[in-house]
Nucleic acid binder design. Sequence first.
DNA 1: AATGAATGAGGCTTCATTCAT
DNA 2: TATGAATGAAGCCTCATTCAT
Lengths: 201, 201, 201, 201
Amino acid sequence: MSNMSTLNTNTEEHIKTVARQIFFAEGRLNATTQEIADAAGVNRTLLNYYFRSRDALFDQVFDEAMQHLRHRIESSISSAAPFREKMETLVDILLDEITQYPYREIFIITQINQKENKLKPPTDKNNWPSFLAEIKKEMDAGTIPTMEPIDYILNIYSMCIFPILMKPIYSHMLRITVDEYQEKLNDRKANIMAYVFPQNK
Amino acid sequence: MSNMSTLNTNTEEHIKTVARQIFFAEGRLNATTQEIADAAGVNRTLLNYYFRSRDALFDQVFDEAMQHLRHRIESSISSAAPFREKMETLVDILLDEITQYPYREIFIITQINQKENKLKPPTDKNNWPSFLAEIKKEMDAGTIPTMEPIDYILNIYSMCIFPILMKPIYSHMLRITVDEYQEKLNDRKANIMAYVFPQNK
Amino acid sequence: MSNMSTLNTNTEEHIKTVARQIFFAEGRLNATTQEIADAAGVNRTLLNYYFRSRDALFDQVFDEAMQHLRHRIESSISSAAPFREKMETLVDILLDEITQYPYREIFIITQINQKENKLKPPTDKNNWPSFLAEIKKEMDAGTIPTMEPIDYILNIYSMCIFPILMKPIYSHMLRITVDEYQEKLNDRKANIMAYVFPQNK
Amino acid sequence: MSNMSTLNTNTEEHIKTVARQIFFAEGRLNATTQEIADAAGVNRTLLNYYFRSRDALFDQVFDEAMQHLRHRIESSISSAAPFREKMETLVDILLDEITQYPYREIFIITQINQKENKLKPPTDKNNWPSFLAEIKKEMDAGTIPTMEPIDYILNIYSMCIFPILMKPIYSHMLRITVDEYQEKLNDRKANIMAYVFPQNK
DNA sequence: AATGAATGAGGCTTCATTCAT
DNA sequence: TATGAATGAAGCCTCATTCAT
């Protein structure tokens, strides 16, 4: 327990932080308990002590990450802020989250096909219908281009998340270095916002 | 070796077809050799006989898939067809490929982080610079909106691929059934093309 | 796979034989898979190959032993032989079985309290009621002392099995060597038969 | 340490009482320290604090039980009471002890085979030879049937202990419920005494 | 006396791979 | 080409024990 980056006072939370990093940031979804323990600077069996099993640690980290993301997004789309502001916040959150944990969504997708459905039924109320209606109203008002509101959302999500996700592949495909690709990514927000609110009106 | 869907005369190719299906279509990236062998209706050790190791089979299926995709895309972007036609072909290919093998990109991403970089350097000539230049020319001509050409490409790729990739998650997030979500997906091409070639000019 | 005492042609059966010996004859109920594999001269994982798990090997050996014993006893008590002969056969079987596998019954008793009930419901027909009736008839005829038939059976079982079971303890308690105790055991059949058929009539 | 049935003032003795119950009465010979601690309502590590190790607790409970049993039996067989009375006391003790702790003998037997011989050499003087001689005298006097005195003793022990030990198995074998079997057991003393002192003389 | 945290020993299982036909 | 048998590597988990208050 030497090289801890977080406080020594809460080993349990420290282990989860390290696991999150390994799973979601580094994308090593199959990291062994030994690797996680080593990265956390603790004895391997301590994972069992705190979480009973690798799967339990897994699920806990996973569920908490999902819950965190859901809360951030849902609170943004259901806020009382004006539409324009809401959308910018949503883009910021998406870019922020995907940058911090680029492999989390991928992780979910792969896990779903390994075992039974891991996605817990969402218990909180669903803010999407009213938000989609709000989008529709903006379209009717001519603020944003008319289309299926769900397509509008999917497009924004896609443009925010996918290029970051694909960094290793697309830099390769385009024959540029990962660093050069990252440079391109850093400037994308303006481009995305230009889609969210077209300027030519 | 009873219920083979491909010809008995080429067991090796049959195994690869089955593996492709399991890895890229079903998304079971961690499928064991036993599972692949069972699905192919062959003895487990035959995989070693033909491919030396699980990793070798893996790599082979993987490399061929990458090569296939690259060829289709590069031939589309470097064809002599007019730009408008080229772009539509590109979108068609992307939608087509991702629909057939929705997990292939995910597969690549996750694998990259498990071992050393698996991406072999592309040996064929690089058509992207000239295609990006072509895009730039169209922008200058006012046919398509002005932006970084690479953003234009990334956006199109994103909108084509990502929503299909995320089907299990986003249907869940939006609280609609997977079938309802699929319905939305089926109609997306027009929406994407509206981004590729904005109609309001 | 060198020092096999049974035939090399059937490793699976050989492993079971060794397991039976360790469990039921030597009484090492907690023997590890490694110990069993070592005793059988095979690789530890071969146990998994043949039996899937330690528990499965366990259960198989166990069930077969029980079935074997049950068959021997039930066929003896339901035979057409005269009563006197039947009883002698029964005593012979009990002495024989307990001598070969002295820890089997103990094994059962201890296991019952570890997990769910391991005793499978007996599927074959129940010969005991008619045998108990036959005993009753003999008692009425004065051939054997009158008592509850079930007590008669329990006493015989007890006298056959228990002293052999308790060898390590009773030799100790009585302050004689295990060998001396064994000597006493060897002569017990006549004494037991004297209970089964008292001579003083 | 809440729901203790024994006094709070002596946790050490309390733990032993609980352990005795689990080992000898419930027959859970492989109970973990956690299970014992839970049953005793104390922290797991307290077992180590008081007894150094699980084995030490084990041995202590074991030795004390053996000593207790030995004392009761030896005091009965070496008392000054008349032979008839002595024998009845012996049977009472055996039935009483085995009823309270039916798994103690089994416990001993199984443990002997796990490690080195756990049976400590008895330090008290050996009353058995004189008792066996007393039995011999009774036989000569015709009070009891003539046989090897040691067989007489073994038979009595067997008839007292074994049927109780085997309750789970024999009720199953005879296809009666455990409760029905228990009914039979309750009436056995008279039957045993009829063996100890045959009435037909 | 008591406890939460941490650790090491030891066991079981899965899996890809190799061996021997 | 195909297969059953056998093996080693690597992982996970349980448990008793020890450490530090």
